[in-house]
């Protein structure tokens, strides 16, 4: 009903792509918050970093928008952008699906990594993108992330990873599973070099990404109310045959159980990262 009203307001057809899902309904110039049902002018919504100005819900961000929010303007230089999807299982329809997604999302894979500056300080930044096969990790994602980690080692830079993922990518089978070992081994190497790694959980991060590099930060941050877990809530409910309590596997729950350091709102994220990087530079002197 509200949507109809908005349609009228806009005088145009409702546009709802699969990427936006129910959580990010774009209707012409307006957005409806699926949490508080508030209707927000799209420009205001994006100015507010894709956070609902009414209830504070943090909506999912594309890698492009995230990089814009975190990296100083014009400083992001991509690493491994030429590493593309492989099809080790020759899984029927997989590459075709990837091509379709590329066309639709205008991105090549589920993570974008690069060097950048954050408040003038150099860093390696990796940002996953949930619009691309749920941010799942196959060989290209694993390779790009490993290259980013190795770049941090080579250039002695801090590493920041924004995580959003459904886990290891099914279509690439065992090769996806091995990306967990590969990325985690690279983090082990980074640790031996005494370099800083900050991992940021965003909604949702589950499966093989939670069970590898995402959980290995020296400092682990999370956006408010992000779903974070190894097993997905549906799998757990099927296993234990009961409904999970509200807030189970959310950022606040993980903070309480000791698995993350701090919950940081999007508006404070860049400043917090910059501050943490600065504190580690001082330590080195």
């Amino acid at each position: 009903m509200i949507i109809d009203k908005v349609k009228k307001l806009n005088g145009e057809e409702a546009v709802r792509t699969k990427n936006e899902s129910a959580s990010d309904r774009m209707i012409g110039k307006w957005v409806k918050c699926d949490n508080c049902k508030e209707i927000i002018y799209k420009e205001d919504f994006h100015k507010n970093l894709s956070v609902c100005p009414n209830c504070g819900k943090h909506f999912r961000l594309s890698a492009r928008r995230r990089i814009k929010q975190i990296a100083d303007e014009g400083t992001f230089k991509e690493i491994g952008g030429d590493i593309l999807t492989k099809d080790p299982l020759h899984f029927e329809g997989y590459l075709k699906k990837v091509e379709m997604l590329k066309e639709k999302t205008k991105i090549e894979e589920a993570v974008k990594c690069g060097t950048c500056e954050i408040e003038g300080q150099k860093a390696v930044l990796g940002v996953m993108d949930g619009n691309f096969l749920m941010g799942s990790m196959g060989s290209a994602v694993g390779e790009r992330i490993t290259l980013a980690i190795e770049t941090a080692i080579k250039k002695k830079l801090p590493l920041i990873m924004f995580c959003v993922s459904g886990g290891a990518r099914m279509q690439e089978g065992i090769v996806s599973l091995m990306q967990m070992a590969k990325t985690s081994s690279a983090i082990a190497k980074l640790n031996e070099e005494g370099l800083l790694y900050i991992s940021v959980f965003t909604d949702p991060t589950t499966g093989g990404v939670t069970a590898s590099f995402a959980s290995l930060g020296d400092i682990i941050l999370a956006e408010p109310k992000a779903l974070i877990g190894f097993a997905g809530p549906r799998v757990i409910e099927q296993t234990i045959k009961q409904k999970l309590p509200d807030g189970f596997q959310r950022s606040e729950f993980l903070l309480e159980h000791g698995f993350i350091d701090k919950i940081v709102e999007r508006k404070d994220m860049k400043e917090t990262l910059a501050k943490l990087i600065r504190l580690h530079i001082k330590k080195l002197r």
Binding site: M180, A181, S184, S185, I187, A188, N191, T210, A211, S212, F213, A214, S215, L216, I228, G229, F230, A231, V235, I236, T239, I240, L244, F248, Q249, H257, G258, F259
Partner: peptide
């Protein structure tokens, strides 16, 4: 995939072993 396993950090435990 149980509640207790999640509460006690199943993902973290696996990740740490890999590393």
């Amino acid at each position: 995939p149980g509640m207790g396993a999640e509460e006690r950090g199943q993902g973290e435990a696996i990740a740490r072993n890999l590393m």
